[in-house]
Computed example of a mutant assay.
Amino acid sequence: MRFKASIQNITTFTKLTASLNSLGPLAWVKLSDEQVCFTIIPEQGTQVWAVLSIDTIFETYTVQSAANNVINLEVPLTSLNRALKSALNATSAQIRLTKKDNLPLLALTIATTSSSNSYAAFPTTGANNEDGLNTLDASFGGGSRETIVTQEVPVRVLGPDTVAGLHEPQCREPDVHIILPPLMQLKSISDRFTKLALLGARSGTTASRTRLEVAANMHGCLRMSIKTDAMSISSVWTDLNNPELDPGQVAGGDIGIAEHPSTRMKQLGSADGRSEEGWATVRIDGRDWGKVMSVGRLGGRVIACFCHEHALILYVYLPNDNGDDESVLTRLAWRFFHLPISSYYDLHTNF
């Protein structure tokens, strides 16, 4: 079993793990030849299924195993994110799966360069600092010093049988799909709503009962509201975009689109958001929603798929590092579920 890769986008990797860490302490990481998957499945609350192409994060990448070159790991996100933060200013960074005292771990090796007036070599390998890091300092002619630091993140290797029963949730086709406004803007408003609801709640009301109502229609409208015995407040966004479905990706092609729930919903409601027809609504925990909105730090576009009174699925699309338009995108699927799930729908759009 072997995994080794050089990291080319440390900033995105760090932001990703920080966002995931806000939703759960452990992630199932699936490494394969085609992609890298991060999954969080808590006992309750948000499930996260994040699928990334390899070149989104890594430059060189090698994975080998007897199980069709697939490696499954249980990774502590806090430790991984802390290690990645130390590499933000690195000139290079590599990550590999290794063992120490017969225990598996991810070793993140970071190289940084700084100016120095010294020209001698100062090897310090073998001594760990207070953070448990192994370091090697070397100075070169011209006054530059390279420091190599290795961060070690303990992990657990999961056998194929352990993860065989884990699969992406399934739900019916969405009634509404819409591109959300900036997530940090949504987070600010939803956090304010939740705090106001808690302040005005009656004695005995707990945070777990604070439910945000999020709704959207096929006319570019999004509404977020909260209601308690003491208050009722809402915010409405208009002129948002409802992306068109791609006939080549929808079962039945043009006929399938004509019969799609979102097409029927588009015949209802209005663009000013005043009509009560044509809205798809879900109710979610306010604090849980606020945590998920932290994915906004990654940037990119976010499509929300509403299954009325059933589930909310978020798709986060990341643009290229070179700033190109969204011709090449990476999908991260963040899913909320608050009712039993029976099937899964993967939205296909023609950007």
Results as ranks from 00 to 15, higher is better:
K4P: 02
N9V: 00
K15Y: 09
T17H: 00
S22V: 09
S22K: 15
L23D: 06
P25G: 11
E34K: 14
I40D: 03
I40T: 08
I41K: 15
E43A: 11
T46L: 03
S53D: 12
S53K: 15
I54D: 02
T56F: 09
F58W: 00
T60C: 05
T60Q: 13
Y61C: 03
Q64G: 02
N72M: 10
P76Q: 04
L77G: 01
T78M: 12
T78C: 07
L80K: 10
K85C: 05
Q94R: 11
I95Q: 10
T98R: 12
K100W: 04
A107I: 05
I110T: 01
S114L: 07
A121Q: 08
T124W: 02
G126C: 09
G126T: 07
G132Y: 07
L133Q: 13
L136C: 04
E146Q: 15
E146G: 08
P154A: 12
L158C: 09
G159W: 04
C171H: 10
H177G: 04
H177A: 12
I179H: 08
L180G: 14
P181K: 03
P182Y: 11
L183K: 01
T194N: 10
L196S: 13
L199G: 10
L199W: 06
S203N: 13
T206N: 12
T210P: 00
L212E: 08
M218K: 10
L222A: 08
R223N: 09
I226L: 14
D229K: 09
S234T: 06
P247E: 13
G248W: 03
G253E: 11
I255L: 03
G256T: 11
G256M: 06
I257M: 11
Q267E: 10
L268C: 04
G269H: 02
S270D: 15
S270A: 08
A271Q: 02
R274S: 11
T281S: 02
I284K: 00
R287K: 15
G290P: 00
K291V: 09
M293K: 04
M293Q: 15
G296A: 05
C305F: 02
F306H: 03
E309R: 10
A311C: 11
A311S: 14
V316C: 13
Y317G: 12
Y317A: 10
Y317T: 09
L318V: 04
D324S: 12
E326L: 14
T330L: 00
R331M: 14
Y344P: 06
L347N: 01
N350V: 12
